[in-house]
Write a protein that binds this DNA or RNA. Sequence first.
DNA 1: ACCATAATGATAATGAACAGCCATTGCCTT
DNA 2: AAGGCAATGGCTGTTCATTATCATTATGGT
Lengths: 126, 126
Amino acid sequence: MKRTTNQRKAIRDVFSQTDRPLSTEEVHAAAQRHLPRIGIATVYRTLKLLLGEGWLTAVRLPGEPPRYELAGKPHHHHFHCRACGRVYEVPGNAELLDSILPAGFTLDSHDLMLCGRCAQCSGRPG
Amino acid sequence: MKRTTNQRKAIRDVFSQTDRPLSTEEVHAAAQRHLPRIGIATVYRTLKLLLGEGWLTAVRLPGEPPRYELAGKPHHHHFHCRACGRVYEVPGNAELLDSILPAGFTLDSHDLMLCGRCAQCSGRPG
DNA sequence: ACCATAATGATAATGAACAGCCATTGCCTT
DNA sequence: AAGGCAATGGCTGTTCATTATCATTATGGT
């Protein structure tokens, strides 16, 4: 039987109140602001749970642990800031890639990851 | 002093004779065809060396170890076959993303990863 | 050819992300 | 309100890619 706990509510709230994909650690830190004793194991378990019920989707990026965001959003791409490490959403045109696929290949999905500095970090040194 | 060994020559040959990014294991297997006693540690060391001198570039993909390819190739994207795990090159139109960047963001690089089944695996079950 | 030493290869050690364990907590049905 | 049991939290264990270690091999300047 699935139960509604304060920890799970807190983690759902974190995602409802943000507009960018969050890593496990970011979720943990954000949830701890409301539930200081929440453990990292619970965050891992709850993220897996929310993935399983299709409430979250994973945003996987190379060489880093996955981020998670609310499922069902309109098509968009992601921008990874190499200064602060945060991942942002950017609007996406989805029809760009139909023509470039070699013969015989079957396309399931695609992922466009942009890399640079976000507005907040563009003005800073480093 | 840097020495030219048979192992390093073999690894360079592997990349000169292929047209898709190779994982460490793929490089090891290919090099072993000519040098059966080559160790995986040497492959790791040599890949790092060739990266350092700019002869190779890394192709990083989410949740998997990086692939490597010859540096200096014309702009292209990558296709990851979810059946056989191989990564292929696909021709790239580079001007796809000029318009979609939010104000204040600085773009350093981008990476378009396509995911599906390659020509070889498209006909097979699974 | 000689030999200092760079490079190799087998294996142990590391590091990071995540899962398992288990005593304790607290949700929810009755 | 009470207790069965799902869920939690602190921890250890696992997994996997990669790196360190070290005795041995082999390259290249002399």
